[in-house]
Simulated assay, not measured.
Amino acid sequence: MAIKFVIERREDNKAYGTLSWNEKKLRSGAISGPYGNKELPAGLYHVKRNGLIDKSTGDSAFCDSLFRCWFQLITPQFSTHRTELGIHPDGGDYIGTKGCIGIIDADTVPWYNALKSVPSNGYTALEVFDLA
């Protein structure tokens, strides 16, 4: 059972959509792009538990409004030149990411806790769909 990011619309080179994980009862608005190489490509990714990293509050781009700062690495299961893609709160002074999935909730602790619940050497899948 996978996490899904469905890109629903584009505006100002930003891809907006919904990030959901039905098994964990999570559903949030999310954004990808416009910085770096823009939004992440559609396809299948692995989300490994050992890729969940706590970040410093000094890295405000990775923090939510409650100053919970983290980054979850995602690994494409297809050929791409893109690296360092992930899921994280969309914080900081600018709206958007460098190709990651930025969760736009004020409180991202439920996502952090759900990702942390993945077994330590395990992973879950992430499917990215582009409907825009």
Rank of each mutant, 00 (worst) to 15 (best):
P110D: 11
G43F: 04
G99L: 05
D105V: 11
G33A: 11
F67I: 08
S32Q: 11
F78I: 04
T83G: 03
A125L: 15
P119I: 09
F71K: 08
S120T: 13
G29Y: 08
R68Q: 14
N50L: 08
S56M: 02
I87Y: 01
V118E: 04
L126H: 14
P89C: 02
Y16H: 07
T80Y: 06
A132I: 10
I7W: 08
A15G: 03
E8R: 11
Q77P: 01
Y16Q: 02
I7Q: 10
P110K: 12
D90T: 01
N37C: 10
R68A: 07
K24P: 01
G33P: 09
N13D: 11
L66H: 12
R68Y: 11
W21A: 03
W111S: 05
G17Q: 02
N22F: 02
W111L: 03
I104L: 13
Y112P: 03
T75F: 09
A2K: 14
I95L: 15
S117R: 01
I95F: 13
K98M: 12
A106K: 15
S32D: 11
V47S: 00
L85E: 00
V118P: 03
R27L: 14
N22Y: 07
L66I: 03
T75A: 06
V47N: 01
I103C: 13
T97S: 15
V6P: 09
D12L: 05
N121Y: 14
Y123T: 06
K24N: 04
E11H: 09
N37Q: 15
K55H: 08
A125P: 09
Y123E: 12
L40G: 09
I104V: 12
F62E: 01
K48T: 08
D59E: 13
K24I: 01
D59W: 04
F67Y: 14
K38Y: 13
H81M: 10
E8G: 06
L85T: 00
T83H: 12
M1T: 13
Q72D: 07
R82P: 03
N113T: 05
D107A: 11
Y123C: 11
L115P: 08
N37K: 14
G36T: 06
L44G: 04
D12F: 05
A132P: 12
P110E: 12
P76D: 02
E39A: 07
G43A: 04
W111K: 12
K48L: 06
A114N: 08
R27F: 10
C100F: 09
I101K: 05
R82L: 10
W70P: 04
N50K: 11
G51V: 09
I95Y: 15
S56F: 01
I3Q: 10
G91K: 00
I3F: 08
